[in-house]
Amino acid sequence: MSTASTVPATAGDVKENHGSLHIGDLEVNFFDSLDEHSGLPPIVLVHGTGGSTRSHFGFLFPMLAAKQRVVAVDLATPQGPPDEGQIRMAEQVQAVIEKVLPDRPVTLAGYSLGAVVAATAAGTRPDLVGGLILMAGWLKTDAQQKLRNDIWRALRQSDVEALRRYQAFCAFSAPLLAMLSDGEIEALVSSFRTDDVMAAQMEINRHVDLTDVAPKIACPTLIVAGTDDLMTPFRQSKRLFGAIADARYTEVTSGHAMVVERPAELVHLIAAFNANPNQYPAGAILPTRRP
């Protein structure tokens, strides 16, 4: 079912291998830091809507790879019915794990849509996943999220420049945006995608439903919510906290773009969970961090 090629590449100091496999007509790319460093489980990263390993995990990938092996999947966007999107993407993650990290527990960490995909992957193949981290995820798309999705779709038709501004407005926390200069705001705005792939992923977002799969997640799970997240509001993360048996919960002071706003805090949370998933028991809300 899959073929793979390996091309050496480098990102900073991380010696990183790039590979790919095929599922049907989809090509799935992944990156592998290779170096085990320690006896810690490898971490598998799954990016969010409109993202990639590079754009969402430019910080997390190399910094986590300093202490443990990291594999990151660049999701391919399936063409079929949008309500099957989450399972089609979960299959990609499962295929990469089976190919690159067979027969060993991995810690699967997803961000945004990647959290939905990771939860689906863990719920449908509990044997592949030893620990699960869901950053800015959600349980089932609600009316508030559909309303935002409607605006996104309408602006894509009518005013792409306004759409980019709207994306920046939704993705980052109000306190962060308030600190930026005009030039920095424009740089953020221009970084957003509005292409067909992005649009297809937004359709998948409309149809997310983890209600059935969440109870099947058996491994220790860490839920990370952004306090100021407009796209996947923290109450959605709390719904995951309620739905997943072995879950613990924490918040970072951030908007949806926590991989940009609080990357070092995410490294802390992911690394600490990977080293000891049961440091806090199921049902725990992590103590507030006061640096």
């Binding site: 900073g12 100091d13 190399p62 306190p175 002071t253 990357p263 070092a264 805090e265 640096p291």
Partner: peptide
């Protein structure tokens, strides 16, 4: 405290440059 936390985590992210990650 919120300002302190923001400054702390922002500063900590600057370690990526110290670890020679190209973009940072």
């Amino acid at each position: 405290e919120e300002m302190r936390e923001m400054l702390f985590w922002y500063n900590d992210s600057r370690f990526a440059a110290r670890r020679l990650i190209d973009d940072y």
